[in-house]
Design a protein around this nucleic acid. Sequence first.
DNA 1: AGGCTGTTTCGAAGTTTGTCTAAGTAGCTG
DNA 2: CAGCTACTTAGACAAACTTCGAAACAGCCT
Lengths: 123, 123
Amino acid sequence: MCQIRRMSKQALPLMDPVCCAPLAQEPIGAEDAAVLAKAFKAVGDPIRLRLLSLIASRDGETCVCDLTGPFEVSGPTISHHLKVLREAGLIDCERRGTWVYYWSRPEALQRLSAILGQQVTRV
Amino acid sequence: MCQIRRMSKQALPLMDPVCCAPLAQEPIGAEDAAVLAKAFKAVGDPIRLRLLSLIASRDGETCVCDLTGPFEVSGPTISHHLKVLREAGLIDCERRGTWVYYWSRPEALQRLSAILGQQVTRV
DNA sequence: AGGCTGTTTCGAAGTTTGTCTAAGTAGCTG
DNA sequence: CAGCTACTTAGACAAACTTCGAAACAGCCT
């Protein structure tokens, strides 16, 4: 199930040690590249990208039950993709009663955005 | 070999029809997601991310001969990764005499950055 | 033309990923 | 507690990806 408490405690587990220098500013190191590539790979799947957009474009939280509808894949597959996004630090979740709710981590998206972009953004 | 003329003519073949609305603004459509996911997948590999950073952090062009050195993989593998980046519209190349030179397409990186970020950037 | 160097393409391992069905866990309700 | 619903995990399998060595191609030089 959703690792509620554990995930909420550690923010951005994968990207934390990575600096924010844009790609085009200086050649990225091998370790940073490995960590960042994992995050980019997480958004490198059409269904995950749509899931992330669905979750991020909501004001508050999104119930999983609202996420399985728009896709042509089975529930377990959606759950798998949500897990990948969660392990990449892009979203987080919490179970309240029967349902599980997801929300996005804008700071993680912003960080990835800053890596690709030219502006030297501090997040 | 490097599709010099052909690639230079058509700019951003994969991302051209995709709009620039940030992920978090509105749920992305399935077609846009497919195109964008391909681009994100291209940077979702550590070697490709380093290659892109190496190329993008240079002022001008980068010779392939300077790209094979820093990596522990064979020449053909580097060539394959460069092809993936090129097909994603992130870099382009030209052969001049014996050597092939690569350069980055900042507008493509900027577009991806804008999709992830919150600012409504027009590129 | 023939040989040499730099780069890409081809074909074939081995690994990873996306997807499914089946089974398991969490929590509600009677 | 039994049964029900919501969601996740486990195991399996096909498709895709990464990588390599070998071969092919492009352009220089003699």
